[in-house]
Design a protein around this nucleic acid. Structure first.
Lengths: 170, 170
DNA sequence: GTTGGAATGTCAACAAGACTGACGTATTAT
DNA sequence: ATAATACGTCAGTCTTGTTGACATTCCAAC
């Protein structure tokens, strides 16, 4: 498949054809569709969309986070996020509390109901991820993560690493 | 990392924690953002969106494809695709020709101008993919593809494989 | 202290792009 | 002849992104 070679500098050189790269591109396209398919179905039943899923995921992941914080991770405008948050708060899935130290901030947490939806969404997504991991095998999983991490923008990897470290600390 | 074990049936068993799976989920989220970032920038300059990119990509990949064919691969409604195709045809990036065998069909191809845009889009995307592949190394690349393929819906893998085979035949 | 700027968050209006439903037309298949 | 297929289009709705305007709060300079 992909041939590797060590250069004198010690850097790995890969001879990658356009065809090999295009297959990777198409794999990303089709796989991402599958990746979001199961949560999308659950969300549609509740009248929510993918934006709600993202908000719920990162609030669950980082309880008490501020709107600004969430903005940076999600990479959308605050107005766009606000619409999503407003409906989640109105429906009682997310709680918004005025910050004690800084009253401009709102600290976001999931309610019991919100946590239940988060659970059903992440269960579905984990099931698919688990299936993919088991089918591909442990070596493939390591490679999968390595390529994805190298594909991120630098700025985004900061957030990714921050989330990763959080669990490592526990 | 991910521990593997051979079961008596020969099937690989992996003990996957929720944490490991969630890291994979978050890696997909952030990586896909990077994956689309470069083309999105180019498209925005021209007043196009991601939908135009998808159409251009698969027309390039499958020259002479019909509208119905494209519909199935892209997984959108014809009304949605039509809006995109209409603008691409009006702008002279895509040519639509009545089928010779079946005059109901429209066969879609890229014009020279359309091919030029496709080139700049896929160049940008390939650059990022190449960087990720080189950073991760050849073994990682194989694993990356295996996991992604196992993550697709069955129906989508049909299209993915059809595209893959096309290049293998050449 | 007061004031002005920066930060945080909300509301309003608009656009892209997805969807459904209905309909028209040309062509092919039965 | 009639039915089914392939395609295009109009109309309307929804999600989710955008900008612009605005209120509140904090902080630092005066």
């Amino acid at each position: 498949m992909a041939q590797g070679m060590q250069s004198p500098t010690g850097q790995s050189l890969l001879f990658l054809t356009d065809e090999q790269l295009r297959k990777g591109i198409e794999a990303m396209f089709f796989a991402y569709r599958g990746f979001t398919a199961d949560p999308d179905r659950i969300l549609a039943e509740q009248g929510y969309g993918r934006a709600h899923h993202r908000a719920i995921h990162f609030i669950h992941r980082n309880p008490g986070t501020t709107v600004n914080n969430l903005l940076a991770v999600l990479g959308v405008t605050k107005q766009s996020l606000n619409r999503v948050l407003r409906s989640l708060i109105a429906d009682g899935l997310v709680a918004s509390e005025v910050g004690q130290r800084d009253k401009r901030e709102r600290h976001l947490t999931l309610t019991a109901e919100g946590a239940a939806l988060e659970r059903s969404l992440s269960d579905a997504q984990r099931d698919r991820m688990r299936h993919a991991y088991r089918t591909a095998g442990p070596d493939a999983v390591a490679g999968f993560r390595q390529v994805l991490e190298a594909m991120m923008d630098e700025e985004m990897r900061v957030f990714y690493d921050a989330l990763k470290d959080k669990t490592d600390e526990r």
